[in-house]
Write a protein that binds this DNA or RNA. Sequence first.
DNA 1: TGACTAATGTCAGTCACTGACATAAGGTTG
DNA 2: CAACCTTATGTCAGTGACTGACATTAGTCA
Lengths: 213, 213
Amino acid sequence: MNTLAPIDPRPTTSRRSRKKSRTRTELAEAGAHLFATRGFDETTTNDIAERADVSQRTLFRHFPTKEAVLYGDMDELLTELRDALEARPASEAPLAVVRNAVQSLADNFGRHRDRRLLQARLAATYPSVSAYSRATVQLGWEREIIAALARHMDVDPMVDARPEVIAGASMSAIRIATRQWSFSDGQLDYMALIVDALDAVATIGQEATPPGS
Amino acid sequence: MNTLAPIDPRPTTSRRSRKKSRTRTELAEAGAHLFATRGFDETTTNDIAERADVSQRTLFRHFPTKEAVLYGDMDELLTELRDALEARPASEAPLAVVRNAVQSLADNFGRHRDRRLLQARLAATYPSVSAYSRATVQLGWEREIIAALARHMDVDPMVDARPEVIAGASMSAIRIATRQWSFSDGQLDYMALIVDALDAVATIGQEATPPGS
DNA sequence: TGACTAATGTCAGTCACTGACATAAGGTTG
DNA sequence: CAACCTTATGTCAGTGACTGACATTAGTCA
């Protein structure tokens, strides 16, 4: 071992793939900038491509839809969510699994705060973004939760409705928290809002009683 | 009171509006036929318009999107849902309100069985239909349920998460039931599936226990 | 009947997205 | 290093959902 870091003769990321992900990043940033300043519907995919100095065709090679430019970091987050769900001990109750797994995403949420706020804002403003969020992003989250809970509870999610029902309730809680957070312009503590809303999930089997009683 | 039904001198529905809703119906039927035989993505809005013998422009005056042609009867169903929710007694627990209100839609489901089966099938096959169902149709249901529960529980749904969480869980249950029903090719009893799945909602606050224990 | 209104047709346009083909830059192997 | 393969990108022509503007026709009503 010498003092210099060993030079990897086979770099994991080749120059080519580095360039590729740089293009992707530039597209995402160009999109974010234009969406934030002009609005979502008011920005065309051509505008984004030109600002990133690539052709429109290249944009659609990196992202399947215009909405995906805005939510380009979701794959990464979904992977983190999957790992966090996987890491929960078998002794934990299903609701606690979801709650604790989501809570462990706090780091990611902090790192991408601006992006998340932009996503939340645009989803609250533009129906097309809201639709994409529900039908694609949230569906992805839900699927991870269902799969994890089905394993955790050792049931077939096509037969036993509970994993999907818990997942649906949890996604509602996350939506509420996100709306409140966006509404507060990011001033409130996103994680605290999520945890509070998720805690309301545990109460829904009970008779309607005043909260806190 | 004579034996003949009285002839209304001022018909509620003028010839003009009758023609209009006839055009709408013809468009919906043309769409259903083409979607069922050819597939959703494989049918263009022009195909539908031509089969209904109107211009494409007229189609888009009756329906905002291609997907809306498939779900054209949802406004009617939403109204029924709202009324059914409204009709529930104040003494009923929130989950029972949803369950009983949905159950009272059985008539409607029976009347439009074929249409519902087509919708379910296409939503299971085509991502664009699935996305529309989630982001538009189910969102409409969810909003009605949230509003009704908020009134029923006398809480502000922007503050208290429970109405939305219960609504989200209920929509998950309805989705599961619809998937099972579609999977059985309409052989199983749709209402029974829905009620069974909704009953699973009541269990989610409890510790994970084997079903039936 | 004549004026008003609402439903439809026509047409040109926008914009998201795709397939096909060409080019060039990156990487590999003798 | 030279020939060769691979892959990211550009170009271009197309499709299809949806829209605005304007003309036309059919229904309504005084």
